[in-house]
Nucleic acid binder design. Structure first.
Length: 280
DNA sequence: GGACAGGTGCGGT
DNA sequence: ACCGCACCTGTC
């Protein structure tokens, strides 16, 4: 079966690699230098970048148009953010093609519970196993499992799938969500929704912010992990405790906070490393 | 072998 | 409210 062309889009503000590798999504593969495969729920897309244009192939055109946030003009945001400070200009220049994805809320809740105290490679492996063992058949693989399937699965099996001590968090949160109104959560402002998310087992401040940003498309939050702590201490005004860094950046960046976090994360994780290595 | 990376829960104050 | 430790797995 051949996938139909879903859309084309100029690659200047849609760099597939930047967008997929900046830490917001785990279910993607690089098939070739310029070809990526992406999964979300039971949906599948392949993206090819050639001559300054991204071509997306998928059966789910409308889903992926929204998924990749095509209605938003990132040139405007990138310009606005660049003007804030020299560091921001450099970070935006480095990851100019980053876009914030519109991902599924339930998939994000479990993905980021798994992400806690964990590295990207292992997170991908765990999520892959959960999909392959509990997910329904989907195009070219398996879907992310329905909540009911996750809730019916004993905690120990998540440990067998590589989740380690997070097995209990996954199981407990799946139970909780069985009788939970996620639509009500979507109606709340970010501060209230964050408080609510913090009551889920396995969801702390960082994971809550990731769920808000990637699963609820709330731009006014700023997830702080070890990379962003490094960024804060290296480039920004000092004097805040670690627990205050997120609100410091939220105040600084306002509605662009989440996007700024992605630019800075990607910049620090890649370019920051290279800088450190070449200086020696 | 042993250190380290990576956020959260929990028990202590 | 804040602090320090345990937690699981992979990698160097």
């Amino acid at each position: 079966m051949i996938l139909p062309l879903a859309f084309t889009y100029k690659s200047e503000y849609f760099n597939v690699r930047d967008t997929l590798e900046c830490g917001q999504i785990f279910r993607y593969q690089r098939l070739d230098e310029n070809i990526y495969a992406v999964r979300s729920l039971d949906k599948y897309a392949e993206l090819v970048t050639e001559k300054g244009v991204v071509k997306a192939y998928s059966e789910d055109k409308e889903y992926f148009r929204r998924f990749f946030d095509l209605e938003t003009d990132y040139s405007v945001k990138a310009e606005r953010v660049s003007a804030i400070s020299p560091v921001m200009r450099q970070a935006v220049a480095y990851g100019k093609g980053i876009r914030i994805l519109n991902q599924d809320l339930t998939e994000m809740i479990f993905s980021f519970i798994i992400s806690a105290n964990n590295n990207i490679k292992r997170i991908q492996k765990i999520i892959e196993r959960i999909c392959s063992e509990l997910g329904e058949d989907a195009y070219c693989g398996k879907a992310f499992p329905a909540l009911e399937r996750l809730a019916a699965c004993p905690a120990e099996r998540f440990a067998d799938m590589g989740a380690g001590y997070r097995d209990k968090y996954i199981a407990a949160t799946a139970q909780k969500l069985l009788n939970y109104d996620l639509n009500a959560l979507l109606q709340m402002d970010s501060v209230s929704a964050r408080k609510e998310l913090l009551t889920f087992l396995g969801v702390g401040p960082k994971v809550a912010d990731c769920i808000l940003l990637f699963g609820m498309h709330r731009g006014d939050v700023f997830p702080v992990d070890t990379w962003l702590k490094k960024v804060y201490h290296a480039y920004f005004e000092q004097g805040h405790r670690d627990s205050e860094i997120s609100s410091f950046f939220c105040n600084l960046f306002g509605e662009d906070a989440g996007l700024c976090q992605q630019y800075l994360f990607y910049f620090q994780r890649n370019y920051g490393q290279k800088l450190a290595n070449t200086v020696q």
